[in-house]
Design a protein around this nucleic acid. Structure first.
Lengths: 205, 205, 205, 205
DNA sequence: CATGAATGAGCATTCATTCAT
DNA sequence: AATGAATGAATGCTCATTCAT
């Protein structure tokens, strides 16, 4: 009974949180951080303005939460996919394909993801350290694949961190073309093009 | 006399315009579009707030003008550099190196350039058609090099527009690392790394 | 049984009321009326926010109740003390000393008492007639002593109501110095100083 | 010409400042600090909300300015009046009478003056050090008169700072009765009553 | 032409109060 | 009776834009 009571509360909490988070993601994606208003988010979530503040401390916090949630889900999915691959090529392919698949299912989220990581790179406004961490987490994942590839002689030696960031940014760029300007095209072609480009760019021969 | 009078006027007009444009570039670069105020720009330009509106219709318009000016200068410089190169590799190298050189001399400008093209790609808030044109202008320049390379058999056949945009965005990303996080490092190494990566990625063998 | 049941209810009612009233007094004293929140009071009282509204109509009402309670207790104590004194001087001294003693034991309460009577006098925002009554009750007590003193020839004739209010306010001011800025000093000295000043000020010779 | 131009500007500046300050004084007096809104002040001043912020940094700053202005004017007037008196009694009388006269001409201002000094004494909310200074300035003025009186043997020896504050607060209390509840009565009677009260309270015999 | 004083729409945040459970 | 989630009105402050001088 105690469990049931607690669960009921938790369900509501999660439900509202998700509701608001979803609305926030949509509005932030459409209008950007500055352009989004709490009013609009509350309206989209179907709650009153004050309710948003029961679940999130501030506009910034809400924004970060919506970004964090998406990035963590992306990361989890990609990691799972990569673990299923056994070769170095396979892992790289999973890293790329996993991202394409995730964002194909979360198109609106890509806008915030792309924009905010651009801001992070440009050093504009935010500097949220947590942000840098999320970025690093992604890059490290790629670094480890590249380092393995070099160790196994499949890849030529190169500056791993620099190249990892380069590839990471390249994928972001290709994703932008596909997700935002791809008009619903199947992801196989761009994935193949990108994978080939990258593999050739770093391959040993 | 009519000519002289008009010229004098024009000189003043151009002078003021340049003065405001310079101030705007600096302030926008430092604080971003939302964070910049007309007050700050007017102060930096040494004119009164109202004067800014005699030369530019709105804050947005001023921002676009300062961006346009920089992009056109970049374009002109890169085109000149590329024309001096005769081979396909040389042109690609010039395209990359020219950008690094331009932005090494116009570091503050890079922030707006980078951020705003990110916004353009993300489709956030602006959609200024003129903007899209500036982007296309850059991409076309690259496309023509790639197309030539394929025609001459130096590059393997691939989807030219897609790849051109991908490379273009990759260069932007590498520039961001170099200009914003490179701590004054010489541009030769990142240029070489990037060039090699790209050339291998699209090369015929 | 009916009596027992009702009593049980009443006990709980009184208990809750007192609990909330105490919490309110503390919070109002610390943060002032505007600065206090129902949330904070409910927390301090160990009840839920909504519960406060079961016992008091509004924030203002709760504030008034906590003030009233304290003033009535003060009044009762001072009256008892004065009745024990037989001379006119003694009664005046009791009036002053009783206040010092009461507020020495209810320091936190003094802040609301002082502030709110200031507001009452200044005519700011409240005008609660009940409030005026509490004030008058105090003043009348003093008036009767003064009138007696004049009747017995110990005091020179003067405008009794005006002087009573003046003395009353003077005591409030001296209390403020003692309670809020006295750093725990013994009350004897300020009581003596004040009593002497007043007695000389109104004495017949 | 330069002077004229500057004057014109200054005149406008002073005019607006006074206009807003007047409106602020009235609104603050009627509704208190918390109850007053910038909107209401702007409306009363006949300007737009934003204009208020061209002349004053914040609501608090505006409030302080309106208080400061009044207190300084009061102080200047009282000092002038006291200098005209040559005896110790005369100076004390001027101190009292000057205040009654000033506030008779600035009734609305008395509300802020009274309330805010009460807050200062109660230690509520503000703590603005400047505030404490204004209070001290008044008290010192009185202290010097008392110290002179004792030195000349006209007054019995007593704790000067404590008594000065007591008298100062007593005057505030009497002023409150007269200004706020005196129904336009002539000031002579309360001045006389108060002066007599004080003089007897501190006199040597 | 240039100025800068004035405008007022716009927005994040708080909190007393209500009411379904 | 008690709870606490939800509400939404209220407000200080910013800043792009205008316009009288």
């Amino acid at each position: 009974m105690a469990i049931a009571g607690k669960t009921k509360k938790d369900v509501l909490l999660e439900f509202r949180t998700a509701e608001i988070l979803d609305a926030a993601r949509t509005v932030f994606a459409q209008r950007g951080f500055a352009g989004a208003t709490i009013d609009a988010i509350a309206l989209a979530a179907g709650v009153a303005k004050g309710t948003v503040y029961l679940y999130f401390e501030s506009k910034r916090e809400l924004f970060l939460a919506s970004l964090r949630e998406g990035v963590l889900a992306l990361h989890a999915e990609v990691v799972a996919e990569m673990e299923a691959a056994d070769s170095c090529e396979g892992k790289l392919h999973s890293f790329i394909a996993g991202r394409f698949q995730y964002f194909s299912r979360n198109r609106e989220f890509f806008r915030i993801y792309y924009t905010e990581f651009s801001h992070l790179i440009a050093g504009t406004a935010n500097s949220q350290p947590e942000f840098q961490d999320l970025y690093e987490q992604q890059a490290k994942l790629l670094e480890s694949v590249l380092a393995d590839g070099i160790a196994q002689g499949q890849l030529r030696p190169f500056d791993v961190p620099r190249t990892a960031r380069m590839i990471y940014d390249l994928i972001r760029a290709a994703l932008a073309q596909h997700i935002l300007h791809g008009a619903g095209e199947a992801p196989e072609v761009p994935i193949a093009t990108l994978y080939e480009f990258v593999w050739k760019g770093i391959g040993s021969k």
